Simulated scan of single mutants.
Amino acid sequence: MISNTEETLNFIARLEECYAKKRKVFVDLESVDHIGNGAIVVLLSKMVQFKSSNIDFNGNYPKNRYARSILKESGFIKNLFKDFTVEDEYVIGDENNKIYTHGQRNVNPVLSSDIIKHLSKLIWETPQRCIGVQRVFLELMQNTNNHASFDNLGEKHWWLSVDYDKENNKAKFSFIDFGVGIFKSLENKNSGSKFYRIIEKVKNIYKYGNNAELLKLLLEGEIHKTATGDYYRGKGLPGIVNALKQNRISNLTIISNNAMADVNNNKYKLLNKALNGSFFSWELNYNNEHFSE
């Protein structure tokens, strides 16, 4: 999702086309030599989507030994032979595995607290309070619950995959929802919302040219300021960026619709292929701020 974004988005689009046409798929991974945490959570979430709709979904292992071991640890092959039903919650793997993937619709602070407790113990040897990671979890869950669908609250699943990198003593998080995405959500606010016609207002003020520039304004809190006349107060997507600035998380990357942000390096770009939804990736390492319980 990060190092090979365009090709991965093309892959997702092909899967979504097959799903829409109820066509079975076989995912040929033989020639894959690198698979990232973000791509794994996409693959697992799509597998569940197909299987819960009784559409055949199959695949094979990469020949590359390292890529094969990563995929095996993710639970992908094991769950190829499992039946899934349409549910609110899915868990693939367990916290003792290297990769632990969840799919849910609701905001679940207990789940995020349990994950933080487990990972912080691995990183610092004793459980720690990681309020930056908790902030990210709650904001993303809440956004999916409230904004991922035009019609009903809580209609779309969010998917979270956690990978503990023992060699570098850090945790990698990938979060994705296949909702409408940030910009389509902003474009469709009703007249009762403080963000009604906000893109038009922001465009007139800042003269931005594309969604990459709009994403930067959003993350810097300028859209909230335009809508309310006040600076954001640590919530929403700017609150996630603030957690990065405070060294409470690291390596934040965001993809939504046709825009991508490498927030650490202040790089924003347009994508040739759009994601139907939003993807977030971040890390927690030994040098990030944390607090004893």
Rank of each mutant, 00 (worst) to 15 (best):
K46L: 15
K267H: 12
L138D: 02
I254E: 15
V136T: 11
G181K: 05
N264A: 01
S256Q: 10
L215F: 00
K245E: 13
D165H: 12
G209E: 15
E73G: 08
I240S: 01
L214V: 10
S174T: 02
N188D: 12
N152P: 01
A261E: 13
K273W: 06
C18S: 13
R105N: 07
T126C: 10
F183Y: 06
I40T: 15
L140C: 05
G229V: 12
E17H: 08
V162I: 13
K267L: 12
N79P: 05
S52P: 00
N108F: 12
N58P: 02
T85M: 14
N58S: 07
R197M: 11
K78I: 14
W282T: 06
F173E: 04
E213S: 04
L252S: 04
N152C: 00
L218A: 13
R135A: 04
G179A: 07
E7C: 09
L122K: 05
K203V: 05
I55A: 03
E283P: 14
Y100E: 15
I12H: 01
D33Y: 14
G132V: 15
S281M: 09
K207R: 07
N258F: 04
E125F: 10
L122C: 02
V263N: 08
T253I: 08
I77K: 07
F178T: 03
K273I: 05
C18D: 14
F11E: 09
N145D: 10
L119R: 05
N210R: 06
S45I: 09
N4Y: 11
K22S: 15
Y268G: 04
S174L: 03
N264R: 00
E289T: 13
Y66V: 14
E6G: 00
I77G: 09
K117W: 07
H34T: 11
S281H: 12
K273C: 08
N265M: 13
A148D: 00
E17D: 09
K184M: 01
G75R: 08
S69M: 05
D56Q: 11
E73A: 14
E155C: 00
L111D: 03
T8S: 14
F178D: 04
G38A: 00
F137E: 01
G38V: 02
N276P: 09
K82G: 11
N60P: 11
A20W: 10
W159Q: 08
N146R: 01
F173S: 09
S45Q: 13
L252C: 04
K117A: 09
D262Y: 09
L217H: 02
Y208I: 15
H118C: 13
I254D: 15
N251K: 02
N211G: 02
G93M: 14
T85Y: 15
K207M: 04
Y90V: 01
R65Q: 14
N152D: 04
N288W: 02
N146G: 01
L138W: 00
